[in-house]
Computed example of a mutant assay.
Amino acid sequence: MSFNYDDLLNRACQQMPEVQAKKERLELPRIMIQTIGMRTIIANFKDIADALDRDPQHVIKFLTREMATAATFHDSRAIFQGKFRADSFERLLQRYLEGYVVCPVCKRPDTKLVKEKRLTFLTCNACGAKSSIKQL
């Protein structure tokens, strides 16, 4: 059997998945915090979750577990029980970004969370990698 190199190369290229990459870089909006009594309110929480391309409930669940406090999500803002500083939220959002948004293979933020039975996987739209993530 004799194969032409160009034909084989074209066939291989046709079988490759299309790369879907966001053109802009992932930038989180500045966190707008208000402290009222013993509550901390993030006014632009929905914008932050949209920038991460994640469900706000998933992000708030991560933050409440890491901060060991209660929180609610209402009208695009998150209300946390207790007084917290903006830098602690920024640090935790960076950890969330590394663990649940950025692909561990190609380091791009073009991912989505896929739940299969009891396990959750981080599937990359750019490189096609599928890696398991820690359950919340």
Results as ranks from 00 to 15, higher is better:
Ser2Trp: 15
Ser2Leu: 14
Asn4Gly: 07
Asn4Ser: 13
Tyr5Lys: 15
Asp6Lys: 15
Asp6Met: 12
Asp7Gly: 03
Leu8Gly: 08
Leu9Glu: 15
Asn10Leu: 11
Asn10Cys: 03
Ala12Arg: 13
Cys13Ala: 15
Gln15Tyr: 09
Pro17Ile: 14
Pro17Ser: 13
Pro17Cys: 13
Ala21Trp: 09
Glu24Ala: 13
Glu27Ala: 09
Leu28Asp: 09
Pro29Ser: 07
Met32Gln: 14
Met32Asp: 15
Met32Ser: 15
Ile33Cys: 14
Ile33Gln: 07
Thr35His: 12
Thr35Ser: 14
Gly37Leu: 14
Thr40Tyr: 11
Thr40Ile: 12
Thr40Ser: 14
Ile41Pro: 12
Ile42Glu: 05
Ala43Phe: 10
Asn44Gln: 03
Phe45Met: 04
Phe45Trp: 04
Asp47Trp: 00
Ile48Lys: 01
Ala49Ser: 15
Ala49Leu: 08
Ala49Met: 08
Asp50Lys: 14
Asp50Gln: 12
Ala51His: 04
Ala51Ser: 15
Asp53Cys: 09
Asp53Met: 02
Asp55Lys: 07
Gln57Thr: 02
Val59Gln: 02
Ile60His: 00
Ile60Phe: 00
Phe62Ala: 00
Phe62Gln: 00
Phe62Pro: 01
Phe62Tyr: 08
Glu66Phe: 04
Ala68Pro: 00
Thr72Cys: 04
Phe73Ser: 02
Phe73Arg: 04
Asp75Met: 12
Arg77Ala: 02
Ala78Asp: 04
Ile79Asn: 01
Phe80Ser: 05
Phe80Val: 06
Phe80Tyr: 10
Gln81Ile: 04
Lys83Ala: 12
Lys83Ile: 15
Lys83Cys: 11
Lys83Tyr: 12
Arg85Trp: 08
Arg85Asn: 09
Ala86Thr: 15
Asp87Met: 02
Asp87Ile: 03
Asp87Tyr: 03
Glu90Ala: 13
Leu92Pro: 06
Leu93Lys: 06
Gln94Glu: 14
Gln94Val: 03
Arg95Lys: 10
Tyr96His: 01
Tyr96Val: 00
Tyr96Gln: 01
Leu97Ala: 00
Glu98Tyr: 02
Gly99Glu: 10
Gly99Asp: 06
Val101Asp: 05
Cys103Ile: 13
Val105Asp: 11
Cys106Met: 07
Cys106Trp: 06
Pro109Asn: 08
Pro109Phe: 11
Leu113Met: 07
Leu113Cys: 01
Lys115Gln: 14
Glu116Val: 14
Lys117Trp: 01
Arg118His: 03
Leu119Cys: 00
Phe121His: 08
Leu122Thr: 04
Cys124Glu: 09
Cys124Lys: 02
Asn125Val: 02
Cys127Met: 11
Cys127Ile: 05
Ala129Ile: 06
Lys130Ser: 10
Ser132Leu: 13
Ile133Arg: 06
Lys134Val: 12
Lys134Thr: 11
Leu136Thr: 01
Leu136Phe: 05
Leu136Cys: 00
